[in-house]
Every structure is written in C-alpha cells, then in structure tokens.
Amino acid sequence: MVFFALNRCGYESFSKLNIWDFPLWVVDGVLSAEELTALRMQGMDVSGFNYALEHDDIAGIQDALETIREHHPAQTVWVSN
C-alpha cells in the first residue's frame, strides 16, 4: 500500500495511523524541506512532487497516480485530501 497526501490534513491523517512502513507521497507544500529531510533521516520512504495539486484537479491527480504506480507497481494507492 502507498499513501498519497494532497494536503497537510491528509498527511496528518496518515501520521495518526502510525503505519510508517508504507511509502508516503506528498505534493509540494504539504511538508517543508526540513520535515522531508527529517522523515527520510528516520528511514521513512517519503517522496515529494515538485508541484501542488488541488483536490478538484482530477487530471493532475491522475497524472500523479500514474507516476506513483510506476514506482510502486501492483500496490494500492490511498489518496487523502
């Protein structure tokens, strides 16, 4: 399973689950550069897009999901906004 957070609220929902064994993908602005670095230094699999997405940008979300699926084939991707 892969978790995709479109905003800070989505990230916070993921972090409350305390399931850090799953890869996390975030769009630009969800986490600061310092937060990304800290999570990675803790050994967490966190990837960040270099662009932001709105929850109603269906085409943009679909494109991002394609990218995630390229990196994590045959995995379920949970999208949280």
Score class of each variant (00 low, 15 high):
A59R: 06
H71P: 03
Y11H: 06
S47C: 04
V26M: 09
T67Q: 10
V27N: 04
Y11Q: 01
H55P: 09
L65T: 02
A52H: 13
V77E: 09
D63Q: 03
F14T: 02
S15G: 01
T76Y: 10
A74M: 12
I58A: 15
T67Y: 06
Y51F: 15
D63Y: 02
P73V: 10
R40N: 14
F14L: 08
V30Q: 01
F4C: 02
N81K: 14
G48W: 03
L6V: 08
P23Q: 10
S47F: 09
H55F: 14
T37K: 09
F14I: 05
D63F: 03
A33Q: 05
G10I: 12
A74Q: 12
V27I: 11
G29L: 09
F3M: 11
P73W: 11
L65H: 04
H72W: 14
T37E: 15
G48C: 08
E12A: 06
P23S: 09
M1N: 12
L39M: 14
M41V: 04
F3R: 01
V79I: 13
P23D: 12
M41H: 06
C9D: 15
N18K: 14
T37Y: 13
D63A: 01
G29I: 05
H72G: 08
S32E: 11
D21P: 01
T76V: 10
S15R: 03
E66G: 03
E66A: 09
C9T: 12
V30F: 07
D63W: 02
L6Q: 04
A5V: 00
D63R: 00
Y51M: 14
W20K: 00
S15Q: 06
D21T: 15
S15K: 03
I19T: 09
L24R: 03
Y11K: 01
S47R: 04
V2Q: 05
L17I: 05
E34K: 15
D56M: 09
